[in-house]
Amino acid sequence: MSDILVDINKMHFERGERVIYDDISLQVRKGGITAVMGPSGIGKTTLLKLIGGQLTPESGEVLFQDENIHQMSRKRLYDVRRKMSMLFQSGALFTNISVFDNVAFPLREHTGLSEEVIKTIVLLKLEAVGLRGAAQLMPSELSGGMARRAALARAIALDPELIMYDEPFAGQDPISMGVLVKLIKELNSALGLTSIVVTHDVTEVLTIADYAYIMADKRIIGAGTPDEIRSSSSELVQQFLRGNADGPVPFHFPAPSLETSFMGANK
């Protein structure tokens, strides 16, 4: 088996009339942390849903362990999904059950383990994210950062091979952000996971990523190790890294020129 876990090949995806991805190719190496960066609103979450098989591309293929996700039978897809897991931006904890039950949920659903074993596993997973003390709280009683950590505990409950983080740092205070960065890094090496981190927080993610892709305008505009990215000569990449307001990625949403808009309105 190759050391590429997820291989996206010339994938084309559109939603309605709007093209989201135009022929992108992307590889995720086993055991590493791959960062996918890009401005908000270009459908980075969509990329994860494509990998998870929740969406189907127009053309091109997405391989997971050399198997095409979108040509599997439904049953096979559900089997494969047990090997992957996803941390949603909101955490997506089930709001009607406690943190403990949330983490226990995938175990109860997919394994025939006894309640005692499940309890041990759940507490271990919660310990790993530092929330063992919060096991009996309801999700609504957690802060945003804690909810995300609880969701992370749930995501690793079944010991997946691939874990996808959707904007893990968005809207976090610096301390929570630091905690999450540390967690992602540690979990990846301790559990031998493969991670995909989708984010627009460039500085944080470049400290832990092994390889990074930068996306903009439906394409991948830069790829490489963090050092390569930082020293890239591409204007686009540099604009993104420094956060300039205007540049190759325009400040304005595409629109007809001001003159035509106003003249048109006056007519």
Binding site: Q54, R82, M86, F88, A92, E109, A151
Partner: peptide, 18 residues
């Protein structure tokens, strides 16, 4: 809206069934 259905699907649990 809170992605709970999506997350079920990603946990290989069919939201239609569950």
């Amino acid at each position: 809206a809170t992605e709970q259905l999506s997350s079920l699907e990603m946990m290989a649990v069919d939201p239609l069934r569950r």
